[in-house]
Design a protein around this nucleic acid. Structure first.
Lengths: 209, 209, 209, 209
DNA sequence: AATGAATGAGAATTCATTCAT
DNA sequence: AATGAATGAATTCTCATTCAT
């Protein structure tokens, strides 16, 4: 889970920091537009208003952009979760607790559109080189661990293995339903979200107090 | 849903029929090994022990291989579902009913390992050219419609729109959980499957008799 | 100028003769539609409602189709010229004589649309493999020799070399002007043809009685 | 007549400018040797001592090379015509006037051997994608317009439409005769050129003062 | 550091021609 | 003879990555 830093060199100067941020913004934009495979490093450099040479000054290869982008998402995701999922959340009734979690995730997804493919993408066993899926896995695991932590507070008597399983099932269920949510016209999305909550509530209620 | 036949020409000779099958087998194999994007038509031809020219005699391009493969899966899937999901299934208690459905899908997935990526792959809004996701969508919709049909028999009083939504939620939930199942070591898979069933049962019980 | 017969084998049976004719018709059609280079032998076979195998039964390669087609044109051209350019033509005033020649060539071109590219195409020195240009050259030479023959009757005192040069200049001039004629909207074509005649008349009058 | 610049990107570095020139030289050479259709981009890159990647860095496709080459010819042609066809030329007797024009064109053709195929090539109606013919058309039209302009000075009383037609007839006549000139052994070329002049003079004398 | 030109392996696809049936 | 499947060299073009300036 711990990974080498994807950067070729950490720039000391502020200008470099900005350039990295611009490159990541560009990568986010291009990945979101055409997908990781179809994205070209030249297009990313162009989108960032830099030269391809500069891109490779900071990132050793295309995958490093993805990794760094995932890292940035991870940091932002942690921030969001830190702010919305406090230990007090644990005290809420289960339905409200779920609302909190789904709300936090939902707003994050809403604000980081290109995060969605990363969050959704599934690992295909065998495709060892599916960088997107690997990066996605790590991001989801972060959410899983958060939820696991909250469940631990809320239902201390649960066995650790069970708790982790419940958390994973919840996250993967949400992941599975996200495309349906996307494909649904906005007017009918609340209904889908309601189903999502009902599903998770029905699943968790028997095991969580 | 029905699409133009992806074949360039339907071979009149038996030899050609076999070669098409061999090419599809090869495509299945290569797609499963490295994914659609990374798969090369040359690799597929080689895997099929044919020349690249023969491949293009029957398939106008790489996408056609995927489409044809999805078509073959669809036909086989229909067969499997026809055999395992009879109207009588409807009479079973909900838990057994779910066992049937999940069992059918599970055995199909088990026998067609490279079908899984297709079944799992999600559409990323915006990537209009994501052929895998598009093909996957059609395959899943077939399952959705089957389940919808069964639900109609089982709970005739349900509104059609609700029924379809329930079916979609179930299928996408399973889709979401499949990677978890894959990533779980075989010894612990029964537990995951049990959770899957519990999840779906808890979701459906309140709305299905 | 004499060339090997382009046919792989001269079919004894009438059926084969017909098939050859059909193939040449098809080649004419396809060459006219997309040009020699872009024409594919498969397209020609398809247009002829035959199999590619049959095509190669009669023609050893693509060039042979062109050669045979040129041969057929040559025969037809000779027929046309035989009928329209009789020795009596020689007796006419020069203007009427030119009318005859241009009329004969014009009607032939009108009836054999795909003959035009062949007639027009120029040899590019150096492109030794420009089959179209080579075939075209032979066709034009036939016309040159005819005109030369007529000039010999009409102006017996001319030196042979001069006569041939005059004939060649006339033919190449017409060849040069044909694209202009084609590009001119039909309503204005008579004007272009009139210029063509004026040009040739002004050229020949001083040297031909 | 003005067309989009065929270049993919205008190189900012001097090195790139040189490389473009080298690539165009190579294209000129290869086109001249085997013709546009048979020329391969790899051969052009090799001839230019560059990698195929560099070629595509500057030219998006093979046609762009032709277009750029035609553009270069056009610029050079304009220069040549500017220098040789001054308004004073108009004052000369018609025979000398023709000498000037043919001389200018002749020397240009002599110095740019691979320009000839471009200048000669005819549009075949229907072959919409005949890039060579299209490029050739533009080059010839430049000459036509130049001659038209000179005729306007020389014979101001001519109707514009007539003038343009005369100019076109002259250019296409020359175009038609060029292959004959090429095919003639050098020793006899002056004779052919003399005929060419006699032809044009006889054509123009009645209409131009 | 920054730029962007240079590289070339590798991808998809075509098509003339051969050959098994 | 007829059919059409099989072949594979050849072609155009891409793009991750390196390197000279």
């Amino acid at each position: 889970m711990a990974q080498e830093t994807p950067y070729r060199k950490l720039p000391q100067q502020a200008r470099g920091q900005q350039r990295i941020a611009r490159l990541l913004d560009a990568a986010e934009c291009v990945f979101a537009a055409v997908g990781y495979d179809a994205a070209t490093t030249n297009a990313i450099a162009a989108q960032a208003n830099t030269s391809i040479g500069s891109l490779y000054q900071f990132f050793p290869n295309k995958e490093a952009l993805l990794t760094a982008l995932a890292g940035r998402y991870l940091a932002e995701l942690r921030d969001t979760l830190d702010q919305t999922l406090t230990p007090e959340t644990t005290e809420l009734p289960l339905a409200d607790f779920l609302d909190c979690i789904l709300g936090a995730l939902g707003s994050f997804l809403g604000e980081h559109t290109s995060f969605r493919p990363l969050f959704i993408s599934a690992r295909h066993p065998g495709h060892t080189k599916d960088e997107v899926a690997n990066a996605a896995y790590e991001l989801r695991q972060e959410v899983v661990l958060r939820i696991d932590g909250l469940l631990a507070l809320r239902a201390p008597s649960l066995a650790e293995a069970d708790r982790l399983l419940y958390a994973q099932v919840c996250v993967d269920t949400v992941r599975g339903l996200l495309p349906l949510l996307q494909a649904t016209p906005p007017s009918r999305r609340p209904r889908v979200i309601a189903e999502m909550k009902r599903l998770l509530l029905a699943y968790l209620a028997p095991v969580i107090g």
